[in-house]
Design a binder for these strands. Structure first.
Length: 424
RNA sequence: GGAAAGGUGGCAGAGUGGUCGAAUGCACCGGAUUCGAAAUCCGGCAUACGGUUUACCGUAUCGGGGGUUCGAAUCCCCCCCUUUCCGCCA
């Protein structure tokens, strides 16, 4: 959520900056409800003050044994006027909240301007795509011929966009998550954390998935949703909290499944493990002092890159352009890993600085140097998406005979085996 | 799922219709004392919003929502959550 003060003071510039991400802010509508709100609020508060004064006088009179009936006669008229004003003010304030909650974050200066992924800018590139002396297969052909990856059975059990892994492939999947957690906790200073996989609407509102993106979520029961990312439960740890300044920065890492309805992505990536209703992800989350968030994003992105480097998977870092960034982000880097079986790069991590956008929704604050409460800045990034990482390992480490070499870094998690072979 | 008790400021904990945004203690921040510190003493210390604009005024907030009343932390109704006991259970 943006600071409403900013809209009041500098509406024109907010409109311009949001325009760069292809969002049209209805400035006239804002000004209309803002003006009416101001008028209603001052009138309401004046009447409330009147009523409070009268009631106080009645109390004083009665405690002195005096007759208060004159005063008491004056109150109903005030109350009648108030009932109407308070109702209108309430409606208007809700309207304002809804309006504000639907506005995306302002892109930082320096974010490339563009309306779609065409506008993204490659920042750097790491690793050399391997050259094959045979035609590399994609992960589906590899996994299925090894009989370690089974989509039809997953469809039977659940529905499409689910996967079933067996044997050493399932183990490799687990190994990846373990490896990631170990690196982030022991080398990057993150605290490992285990969180609920169901969250309430308040939490989803705090990180920005609600109210706008309900259709992307799986809803369970009245007020619970399956998490679309660990970002939601982990970031909401600080909702409604005032954090002692010496506790910043907070760095948390969690390995969770993620559930996405993928509504509106019919026909997209229907084959394979790239786009699933359920996938595992190791998520990095940071809560930092506002002065430190820009540096923290670079650092956090580097933490995610470390995993790809240790696995020797070639990737590139993309600075997302204004129009391609998520709703809550002020700046985002995507990591795209090279997938030889598909002859393309695919997103495997998205690292974002949300500045105070989520913190304002969550009322997550710290006591600053002056002793005043100030909103923290939040960041997060995948470190990494486990399922897509598995895809990358399969495709990059495949051999001519269809077996998969286990990356060195994962062997300690794989009982030392060096290859994935056909399931026997 | 059944029964009971309870949800008040950073924490603990008073407050059962009026001058209560809320006693007291702890924590925290200033100051005094001290060579310095501890102890002691004095003062300050919730949040959000609005108006005015450095220090001011107003409004709202005592789990959430609704109601009664001139007036609600306090009374009534609904919901949520917590704790304890019972049942069930990984």
């Amino acid at each position: 959520m943006l600071d409403i003060q900013l809209l009041r003071k500098d509406l024109a510039s907010v409109v311009t900056r949001l325009g760069s991400r292809d969002f049209t802010l209805d400035a006239a509508h804002f000004e209309a409800i803002e003006n009416e709100r101001k008028d209603l609020q001052t009138r309401t508060q004046d009447l409330q003050a009147q009523r409070n004064t009268l009631s106080k006088q009645i109390g004083m009179a009665k405690s002195q044994g005096l007759d208060a009936s004159d005063l008491m006669q004056q109150v109903p008229a005030v109350n009648t006027a108030l009932v109407d004003l308070e109702a209108r003010l309430g409606t208007l304030q809700n309207e304002m909240q809804t309006f504000l909650a639907g506005i995306p974050n302002l892109p930082q200066d320096g974010v490339p301007v563009g309306f779609n992924e065409e506008g993204n800018v490659e920042v750097r590139r790491w690793g050399q795509p391997r050259s094959f002396d045979f035609t590399p297969l994609d992960h589906i052909d590899l996994g299925e011929s090894l009989e370690l990856l089974d989509f039809p059975t997953a469809v039977k059990i659940a529905t499409s966009r689910f996967a079933l892994m067996r044997g050493d492939l399932a183990r490799l999947h687990r190994a990846l998550a373990q490896f990631m957690l170990d690196v982030h906790t022991s080398e990057h200073g993150y605290e490992e954390i285990y969180v609920p996989y169901l969250v309430n609407a308040d939490s989803l509102h705090g990180t920005g998935q609600l109210p706008k993106f309900e259709e992307d979520l799986f809803k369970v029961g009245d007020n619970l949703y399956l998490i679309p990312t660990a970002e939601v439960p982990v970031t909401n740890i600080v909702r409604d909290e005032i954090i002692p300044i010496e506790n910043l920065p907070i760095r948390l890492v969690a390995h969770t499944p993620c559930f996405r309805s993928e509504a509106g992505s019919y026909g997209k990536d229907t084959r394979g493990m790239i786009r699933q209703h359920q996938f595992d992800k190791v998520e990095l989350v940071q809560m930092v002092h506002p002065n430190d968030s820009a540096a923290a994003l670079e650092e956090l992105t580097g933490h995610a890159e470390t995993i790809l480097q240790r696995l020797n998977l070639p990737y590139r870092v993309m600075a997302l352009c204004t129009g391609d960034m998520g709703f809550s982000a002020a700046r985002t880097y995507d990591l795209e890993v090279w997938l030889p079986g598909q002859n393309t790069s695919r997103e495997i991590s998205s690292c974002s600085n949300f500045e105070a956008f989520q913190a304002r929704r969550m009322q997550a604050r710290f006591k600053n140097e002056a002793g005043k409460n100030e909103l923290i800045h939040t960041l997060n990034g995948s470190g990494l998406a486990v399922g897509r990482c598995l895809v990358a390992v399969l495709e990059n480490y495949q051999n001519a005979d269809g077996s998969i070499t286990i990356p060195e870094a994962l062997r300690p998690y794989m009982r030392g085996i060096e290859r994935l072979q056909a399931n026997k």
